[in-house]
Design a protein around this nucleic acid. Structure first.
Lengths: 223, 223
DNA sequence: TACCAGACTTGATTCAGGTCAACGTGATGG
DNA sequence: CCATCACGTTGACCTGAATCAAGTCTGGTA
């Protein structure tokens, strides 16, 4: 995960051909896995189209989704020798793959890239702090509210008091595994929000936040 | 948090005086806070002695401890413009402070340092993935078991089948806030482990893992 | 030695969220 | 146009961990 066009920012005034040279494109079909948790980490990835989910598994199959990534997001920083997470496409996705060796040539050529990668990692690290608080200390209601708010700030509209339309491209199972809840709980809480006129549910993937700041308040645990 | 002597690794063959020049030492008394969550981030820190806890707070005071740091660990990567976490001393601690500006001079002088910082961030990121799985998907028993195992691999002894002595310098409250549990639950589970002869509790801070691999199995959810 | 305060443990009870099970719903294909 | 199937919702019930409430243990102090 990372901010849009993360890599390119630090080299856009430089030779993009060099960059293209060190990378290869790939397409991943819906539900297909392209990073295996624990496998030796040989590549970085940039999501160029579609969406992707990142997760870790317990031996008995319990799953924690550690993030969703989309266009421009950077993957693979959470890996030393082996990947600390698995990744699979959510819908079909296109990726740019950068072998570590190639990336190293790039950072030698464009030293500011290294700094950019560190920034990316820092941003990610800060997000994770918040996510740990969510998982360790928030109630189910607060988690779902936080998720909705995340999805909407993600849309980089300023926190308006006006209704915000969202689409949630991931199935409920993924939302649940992201929030450390069950599908049933997520479903019940969305229904409750609807009943309270905080949101309206046009279709499974299409939700409107009717009172964004109110949901925001819930998300922060200030009910 | 970071591996011992993280910074120095990449410059130990270089001019350490330059490094000393860009940093200042400080001592923090027990329980004193030295990073305020949300405050503008001006410095990096390296823990040089004692221990430190990192945490985030919800408005109503709920707390999630996101990590413990000790000698050699690096703090401050999870911050862009403002800190994503607060930090306070656990017992009295000594720190080395590196203002961002100074750090930038250092990375210019020793380019490999930038790479080192990124590695540090990556390591941290990988740890956090595991911690999210713990908080989102593990049972109380599994969390406490994981905590004990963490503390012991932390001691860099290989996973032996032999008993391992641990000391837990943090109060139960901190363990609870780290694991997303309450003090009572932590206490009960430690008592249960004792009853099951998995551990022995010599004193509040001093615990011996009698069957480390057994605890390890519990930690992974394989009961 | 006795007292005290803070940290920890233990027990009884409650409740948020999980589990199990039935029921909708909407997309796909024969 | 209905059957199917995967996904989502809703309801009834259960349970793991939280909460509430005593104890207990420890180290410091007089």
């Amino acid at each position: 995960m990372g901010r849009r066009l993360s890599i390119c920012n630090s080299i856009d005034d430089c030779d993009l051909a060099v960059l293209a040279n060190e990378s290869s494109r790939m397409t991943v079909a819906d539900g297909r896995s392209f990073i295996e948790e624990g496998a030796p980490a040989h590549d970085f990835f940039v999501v160029t189209g579609g969406r992707v989910k990142l997760f870790t598994l317990l031996p008995d199959g319990r799953r924690q989704i550690t993030g969703f990534a989309e266009g421009g997001d950077f993957l693979g920083l959470a890996a030393s020798t082996s990947y600390a997470f698995g990744a699979e496409a959510l819908g079909s996705a296109t990726l740019c793959r950068f072998p570590h060796a190639g990336m190293q040539r790039l950072t030698e050529r464009f030293p500011s890239l290294e700094h950019r990668l560190r920034e990316e990692a820092s941003r990610e690290l800060a997000l994770m702090q918040a996510r740990m608080t969510l998982l360790g200390r928030k109630t189910a209601r607060e988690r779902v509210a936080t998720f909705l708010i995340e999805r909407c700030t993600h849309l980089d509209r300023p926190d308006s008091a006006r209704p915000v339309e969202l689409d949630l491209p991931m199935p409920r199972t993924d939302i649940a595994d992201y929030l450390g809840l069950t599908i049933e709980t997520v479903s019940r809480i969305l229904s409750a929000f609807k009943k309270e006129k905080l949101i309206s549910i046009r279709s499974i993937t299409h939700i409107t936040l009717l009172m964004p700041e109110r949901i925001s308040t819930i998300a922060e645990g200030m009910e």
